[in-house]
Simulated scan of single mutants.
Amino acid sequence: MAVTLHDIADKAGVSIATVSRILNNDVTLSVNEKTRQRVLATAEEFNYTKHKRARNNQVQRVAVVQWYSLTQELDDLYYMAIRMGIERAAQQQGLQTVPVYQNNMEEIPRDVTGIIAIGKFSDSQVQALRLVTSNIVFVDYDSLAAGYDCLVPDFENAVRSVITEFVNEGIDDIGMLAGTERTTDQQIVPDLRRFYFESTLRQQNLYHPEFIFAGNYTSMSGYNAMKKAIATLGDRMPHGIFIANDPMAVGALKAIQEAKINVPNRIALISFNDTAIVKYVYPSMSAVHVATDEMAHTAVDMMIKRLQNPSNDPCKTVVGTHLILRQTTR
């Protein structure tokens, strides 16, 4: 079996991104010489060479299917970061990528040997992708039950870390601005963040369904959902609010500031994804960090393994997250 960057990273004890940048002589990478030599020695031990990546020494084409349009992608830097990371990682591995936006299956070239699909997809869309190729890796969508490789963030522990942080701050009235997602053919996609939020609070006897409001993951929907929460709950507004993604968090923060509610003393906020936008709002937003670069490199490695061994059983990779505290928590 051919060696992947994941194999080298595991053996050397570093991230996949670090391995990739060292092997590609990235001069901007800040890493000590001992680590660099360990990675190079591991690659040499495994007899790793990039030209062995491509079957028959030919460049393979992989479609990168983004479930957002270009305009939508600009409003959600999370999915943009994943796509751009995949394209960079694929290029480093000697793969040629073909971008396809908003699930336009008819635009996928029929000569691609694999598909990396980013976002949410209905059963019928999965079948449409399958008609092009069976070598598919889904990113941010759990497709294991359908028989396809997939890569997802660790939603369960991410949500639990948020609730633990609020409780540690002395906050036991916790609300959520949840998101309702639909595929481009309008099939509803369950949100695991809300599922784990509700189930964890129930376990701790802290669940209040009236503290949950929903939007559609846009900044405007976050603004409107928070305005509705403020108007509906008044003085009963929860002291801690978990927000399903960064654009909604930015909109919610605007509504809170317009209502002259103090953050974080009266309301503490934690977002999810930790894209650049939440670092530069004021006050800067605490957020669950999802390692989009790591996801991108891992997705490409999974695709390479699939291309090399198409008959292998599908696998699911869960990428860890961590909570970053900034000015919207106490």
Rank of each mutant, 00 (worst) to 15 (best):
I256Q: 09
Y148G: 04
Q203E: 08
E181A: 14
A252W: 03
S271A: 05
A225I: 07
D149P: 02
A231Q: 15
T184Y: 09
E210H: 13
H239C: 10
N245C: 13
F213I: 09
T200P: 12
F213A: 07
L253F: 04
Y207D: 03
A178P: 07
I243R: 05
I243A: 11
F211G: 05
L233E: 11
A158H: 06
Y207R: 00
Q257A: 03
Y282E: 15
G215D: 02
N168D: 09
F155P: 00
L201V: 10
G175E: 11
L253T: 00
N157D: 13
G240V: 01
D173T: 13
P153I: 14
K227W: 04
C150H: 11
Q186P: 10
V162L: 09
K227L: 11
Q257W: 08
Y196L: 01
E181W: 08
R160E: 03
R160W: 02
A178Y: 06
G175Y: 01
G147H: 15
V162C: 04
N273T: 10
Y217F: 03
D246S: 09
A231C: 07
K279R: 08
A259C: 09
S199L: 15
P190Q: 08
I188Y: 07
G222E: 00
Y196T: 01
A145F: 15
S199F: 11
P153D: 14
S271Y: 11
V162W: 06
I241E: 07
A225T: 10
V250S: 08
V189K: 07
L253D: 00
G175V: 04
E165V: 12
Y280P: 02
G215F: 01
V281N: 05
Y223F: 06
L253C: 03
E169T: 07
N273C: 05
F155I: 00
T218S: 10
P264D: 12
N224E: 15
T164Q: 06
E169G: 07
A229P: 13
I270C: 15
A225S: 15
I174P: 04
D172V: 05
L177F: 08
Y196F: 14
K279P: 02
D173E: 10
Y223H: 04
M237Q: 13
I188L: 04
S219L: 14
I270K: 10
N224H: 15
D154H: 00
D154K: 00
L177D: 06
G179Y: 13
F166S: 00
G215K: 07
D191R: 02
N262C: 06
I163M: 04
I188A: 10
K227P: 09
E181F: 10
L177Y: 06
E165A: 09
M226E: 08
N262W: 10
A252R: 06
A255H: 03
I241T: 08
F197S: 08
E198K: 02
A255Q: 03
T164I: 11
N205G: 12
